[in-house]
Amino acid sequence: MSNALAQLAQHGVSVWLDDLSRELIESGELSRLVDRGVVGITTNPTIFASALSKGDAYAEQVRELAAAGADVDKAVFEITTEDVRRACDLLKPVYESSQHLDGRISLEVDPRMARDTEGTIASARQLWAAVDRPNLYIKIPATVEGLPAITQVLSEGISVNVTLIFSLDRYRAVMQAFLTGLEQAREKGLDVSSIASVASFFVSRVDAEVDKRLDAVGSEEATALRSKAGLANARLAYQAYEEVFSTPRWDVLADAGAKPQRPLWASTGVKDPKLPDTLYVTELVAPGTVNTMPGKTLEATADHGEVTGDTVRGSYDESRQVLDALERLGVSYEEVTEKLETEGLTKFEASWGELLQTVTDELDNARAVQGTEK
Rank of each mutant, 00 (worst) to 15 (best):
L90T: 05
K92A: 14
K92I: 03
K92D: 12
K92C: 03
Y95Q: 05
Y95A: 08
E96V: 14
S97L: 07
S98Q: 04
L101R: 13
L101T: 10
L101P: 00
L101D: 06
L101I: 14
D102N: 12
D102E: 14
D102K: 05
G103Y: 00
R104D: 10
I105V: 15
I105G: 01
I105F: 06
I105H: 00
S106H: 12
S106A: 10
S106K: 03
L107I: 15
L107P: 13
L107D: 12
E108A: 01
E108D: 14
D110N: 15
D110P: 07
D110C: 08
D110H: 09
P111Y: 09
P111D: 13
P111H: 09
P111M: 13
R112C: 09
M113T: 15
M113W: 03
M113G: 06
A114Q: 13
A114H: 09
A114D: 15
A114P: 10
D116N: 15
D116M: 13
T117H: 05
T117I: 09
T117L: 06
G119W: 09
G119I: 09
I121K: 11
I121F: 03
A122M: 08
S123N: 10
S123T: 00
A124L: 05
A124C: 09
A124K: 04
A124T: 10
R125P: 00
R125G: 02
R125F: 02
Q126S: 14
Q126D: 14
Q126P: 02
L127Q: 04
A129V: 06
A129P: 00
A129I: 08
A129T: 13
A130P: 04
A130I: 04
R133G: 03
R133F: 00
P134Q: 02
P134D: 02
P134F: 03
N135S: 09
L136I: 08
Y137M: 15
I138M: 01
I138H: 01
K139P: 03
K139N: 04
I140F: 07
I140E: 04
P141M: 02
A142V: 12
A142K: 07
A142H: 13
T143Y: 11
T143D: 06
